[in-house]
C-alpha cells in the first residue's frame, strides 16, 4: 500500500522518475508505453461493455442490468489505474536495471471477466430477463 502511494506521487512528478538510475534504450520505453496503452484500451473496452449491457439487454430486470454494468465499469476504472501504476513500476525497474515487476492483476482480471460472463449467460438463460 505504501508502495502504491509512492507510485501515485510519481505519476505527477516526472523529474523524480528521471533522477533515478540511467535512461534505458528508447525502444524499451516505447514498448512499455504501448503496454500501458494496451491496458488503457482494455479499460475502455470494459467501459464500452458496461454501456453495452445497459443498452443492449433492455429486457433484463433493472437491478441485474445496472449491477452488471456497474461491475464492468468498476473493472474499467481499476484497469486504467493499474495501467499507469504498472507503467511507472516498469519504467523505474528499467532505469535501475532491476527485473520487471511481477503482477497478479492479469489473472485477477480474467477471473472477474469470466465470472461476469457466466453471470450474464445465467441471467439471460434463466428467464430473469422477463
Amino acid at each position: 500500500m505504501i508502495d502504491f502511494v509512492r507510485n501515485v506521487r510519481l505519476w505527477f512528478a516526472p523529474e523524480e522518475v528521471r533522477e533515478e538510475g540511467r535512461t534505458p534504450d528508447y525502444r524499451f520505453s516505447l514498448a512499455n508505453e504501448r503496454t500501458f496503452l494496451a491496458w488503457l484500451r482494455t479499460a475502455l473496452a470494459l467501459i464500452g461493455g458496461g454501456f453495452a449491457v445497459d443498452q443492449f439487454l433492455p429486457h433484463l430486470r433493472w437491478e441485474w442490468r445496472v449491477g452488471l454494468a456497474l461491475a464492468l465499469l468498476a473493472a474499467g476504472v481499476l484497469c486504467s489505474l493499474r495501467a499507469i501504476n504498472h507503467w511507472v513500476r516498469c519504467e523505474r525497474a528499467m532505469r535501475r536495471g532491476e527485473d520487471l515487476p511481477a503482477s497478479r492483476f492479469p489473472a485477477l482480471l480474467s477471473v472477474v471477466v469470466a465470472v461476469v460472463a457466466v453471470v450474464m449467460v445465467a441471467v439471460v438463460l434463466t428467464g430473469r430477463a422477463g
Binding site: F12, V17, S29, I47, V77, S80, I84, V88
Partner: peptide, 20 residues
C-alpha cells in the same frame, strides 16, 4: 523520441476513469 511523461500518462488515465 523522448519517453512518455508520467503527467501525460496520468492525464490519459484520468480521462478514462472520468469517462467510467
Amino acid at each position: 523520441p523522448p519517453a512518455l511523461t508520467p503527467r501525460l500518462a496520468a492525464a490519459a488515465v484520468l480521462a478514462t476513469a472520468a469517462l467510467a
